[in-house]
């Protein structure tokens, strides 16, 4: 085993321990709720980071997959009385199928044009949520999404749901880490650096881009599923263009091509609005300002930026 692998294993062990301890010790239900939201947002950021950070393909429409996950489970459990655990794979599968169909033509684009293409796709799906009232409940939203239950365990209380969400986050982290450390991960980064060079060494760039697009859609749909069964109510606004932009921001602020960056970015963007309530009407101004400051001083995101500061400090001490 290489040192890199050992280090990763230690990181994940510490991370799991932190989750368990946090779940046990934190009593305040508000904190638990906020932490659960961070978990859901981390799944969103992680999925998009695989696509954007690693493969270098931007998507400005990923909230659509988030929405498909949420509306998918809502429709299946409420209209069709399906168990949520049956709805979960179905919702994820529908997001993956949509990603496949949309990905084939859009992923031929690159750069700004790919951004525009995915932006349009996100808007179309959002309009569908809003206008297809007989199925989605339209603009007034979808109510009555059931509580998750597994045998005697009910995932309605904060703590159980916290563990459920963070269990998914941990599993997803490990899955993504394995992909990144494999030849597929290398190939994704190669696509990021130069598609032509990547195909020259024999990487099937078109297929791989499509696969990672589908994978990231699956993560978003999983997040949507967890969101729907946490809140019991969903409305189109949650999955709008703004939500897509927020996801991109999480990835960029947290750190492109970094698993832990997804966690940092999701944490910051979930916590900031909570902290900034104190500023009342100036909330958005301060929010924007903080994002600007982070980008100006840590242009490569929080993860890389903090690591750089740490490394500089270590070097100074050595001298």
């Amino acid at each position: 085993m290489t040192s890199h692998q050992t280090r990763n294993r230690i990181c994940y062990a510490v991370f799991s321990l932190l989750i368990i301890v946090a779940g046990y010790t934190i009593e305040n239900p508000y904190y638990i709720q906020v932490l659960t939201f961070i978990g859901i947002n981390t799944l969103l950021a992680l999925g998009l980071n695989m696509l954007m950070g690693y493969a270098g393909q931007i998507s400005l429409g990923h909230a659509a997959f988030y929405g498909i996950g949420a509306y998918g489970t809502a429709i299946l459990t409420v209209h069709y009385n399906l168990s949520p655990w049956m709805a979960l794979p179905a919702a994820i599968a529908s997001a993956m199928i949509v990603a496949y169909i949309v990905g084939i033509p859009t992923l031929k684009l690159s750069g700004y044009y790919l951004g525009m293409g995915t932006l349009g796709f996100g808007m179309i799906v959002n309009i569908l949520f809003r206008e297809w009232s007989s199925v989605t409940g339209g603009a007034s939203g979808f109510i009555g999404i059931p509580t998750l239950e597994l045998g005697p365990i009910s995932f309605s209380s904060g703590r159980n749901y916290f563990y459920l969400v963070w269990g998914f986050v941990l599993t997803s982290f490990i899955v993504c880490q394995r992909i990144i450390d494999s030849r597929i991960g290398r190939a994704l980064r190669a696509i990021h650096d130069g598609e032509k060079a990547a195909s020259a060494v024999g990487v099937d760039t078109r297929k791989l881009k499509l696969q990672v697009f589908i994978l990231s859609a699956a993560f978003s749909a999983l997040a949507g599923f967890l969101y729907a069964h946490l809140i019991f109510f969903i409305s189109p606004g949650t999955f709008s263009f703004i939500a897509s932009i927020r996801m991109v921001t999480m990835v960029v602020i947290g750190g492109m091509a970094s698993i832990w960056g997804s966690l940092l970015g999701a944490s910051l963007l979930t916590l900031l609005p909570e902290w900034l309530h104190a500023f009342s009407e100036f909330e958005m101004v301060v929010y924007g300002l903080i994002l600007m400051i982070v980008m100006i001083f840590l242009p490569r995101g929080l993860t890389r930026g903090l690591l750089d500061i740490y490394e500089r400090a270590v070097k100074k001490n050595d001298r």
């Binding site: 030849r183 290398r186 190939a187 980064r189 190669a190 650096d193 130069g194 060079a197 990547a198 060494v201 024999g202 990487v203």
Partner: peptide, 15 residues
């Protein structure tokens, strides 16, 4: 592939 290590660049050749 500039940001990737020399070793990983070589391994990519064996993709």
């Amino acid at each position: 592939f500039p940001p990737i290590s020399v070793l990983d660049n070589l391994k990519l050749g064996a993709y």
